[in-house]
């Protein structure tokens, strides 16, 4: 399975990772090699085999959805990169320049 540069760009975009042209080239080669390696799974016939996503047989584990105060807002916000008035602060969702023009 060969991954084209266009596919790598698309995957990187979905994964929210910016890549330079050199990196696109590098990952296109490396990811293709890995996909070629995992292709050996196709030697196995898995018709009628149930997939395993959990190994110990636990199904749904429930607990009451109760508010506790183990973590305070102040403590949680300390980890944040930028805050303003007790909130997380982020860059604008839309282009700032466009905003200014309006």
């Amino acid at each position: 399975m060969e991954l084209s540069k266009a596919e790598v760009k698309k995957i990187a975009d979905l994964a929210r990772i910016a890549l330079t042209a050199e990196e696109v080239d590098k990952y296109s080669k490396e990811l293709s090699t890995i996909l070629e390696f995992v292709d050996q799974l196709n030697e196995l016939n898995t018709d009628g085999i149930e997939p395993t996503s959990q190994v110990t047989g636990l199904v749904n584990v429930w607990r009451k959805d109760e508010v506790n105060h183990e973590n305070t807002r102040e403590e949680m916000l300390k980890s944040a990169i930028e805050t303003a008035e007790d909130h997380l602060k982020v860059q604008g969702v839309f282009n700032v320049n466009e905003d200014e023009e309006k």
Binding site: I17, A18, L88, Q91, V93
Partner: peptide
């Protein structure tokens, strides 16, 4: 956003994600 490193020159949210990661 919530913790760790944020790229400095990102001007909009999508760029924050992409550049930081």
């Amino acid at each position: 956003i919530k913790f760790g490193y944020r790229a400095e020159n990102a001007s909009e949210l999508m760029e924050v994600y992409k550049q930081s990661r």
